[in-house]
């Protein structure tokens, strides 16, 4: 079923919308959550995501249904990470945090999260579409370098190289704004 039809069902308060949403995106959401949380927590997180989607559409009418749903899922997963502490983080989450941290050795404590979000958004908007996608897929969706190489038709070395340069550019952008 197309996203537009799922949205139409949700907007008309038809529970089939949730069923179709799960049918279409359930596996991807589970993968996303499991890259942040252990499996049990991830499953609960995905269920909470469906509830949040049901409660928010309507009135919301997202332009990008998967991104909207994935964003809820990622936020819920991060909330659980904070609650459950280190023992409840996935290995992928630690790996990504470590890798991404290489671009910014220390973020100033005075920096508010919203400011940091805005600076990252500005940085991403300046990037070419392909590079933005590679960055987002690695650090937002948690895709592996191997998966990215397959998806973009590059060797893994090239993907690593692109990610390295993007991290350096992000560090420069944050430094310019006095955030590191």
């Amino acid at each position: 079923m197309e996203d537009e039809e799922i949205l139409a069902l949700l907007r008309s308060r038809d529970e089939r919308g949730l069923y179709e949403l799960e049918n279409k995106y359930g596996k991807r959401l589970a993968v996303l959550a499991e890259r942040i949380l252990p499996a049990q927590d991830a499953a609960e997180c995905v269920n909470d995501t469906y509830l949040a989607v049901w409660e928010s559409i309507p009135p919301k009418c997202p332009e990008f249904l998967f991104a909207y749903t994935a964003k809820i899922c990622r936020n819920l997963a991060f909330n659980r990470v904070e609650w459950n502490h280190a023992a409840k983080r996935s290995a992928v989450f630690v790996e990504l945090s470590d890798e991404l941290g290489k671009c910014a050795p220390d973020v100033s404590e005075k920096v508010q999260q919203q400011e940091l979000t805005r600076a990252i958004a500005d940085f991403l908007r300046e990037q070419e579409e392909e590079k933005r996608q590679i960055f987002i897929r690695r650090y937002w969706y948690g895709d592996s370098v191997k998966e990215l190489a397959g998806a973009f038709g590059y060797r893994q070395g090239k993907i690593k190289s692109i990610l390295f340069r993007l991290r350096k550019q992000l560090w420069s952008a944050l430094k310019k704004e006095g955030m590191v």
């Binding site: 997202p62 332009e63 990008f64 991104a67 909207y68 994935a70 964003k71 990622r74 936020n75 991060f78 989450f93 630690v94 990504l96 945090s97 470590d98 890798e99 991404l100 941290g101 290489k102 671009c103 910014a104 050795p105 220390d106 973020v107 920096v111 999260q113 919203q114 940091l116 979000t117 990252i120 958004a121 991403l124 908007r125 933005r132 987002i136 650090y139 937002w140 969706y141 992000l170 590191v180």
Partner: peptide, 20 residues
């Protein structure tokens, strides 16, 4: 570095849908 990475990962939660 790990901590900074986590901060950046968390801050990315707020990115607009059109960016992700």
């Amino acid at each position: 570095k790990w901590l900074a990475g986590q901060q950046i990962m968390a801050a990315m939660n707020g990115l607009d849908e059109e960016l992700v």
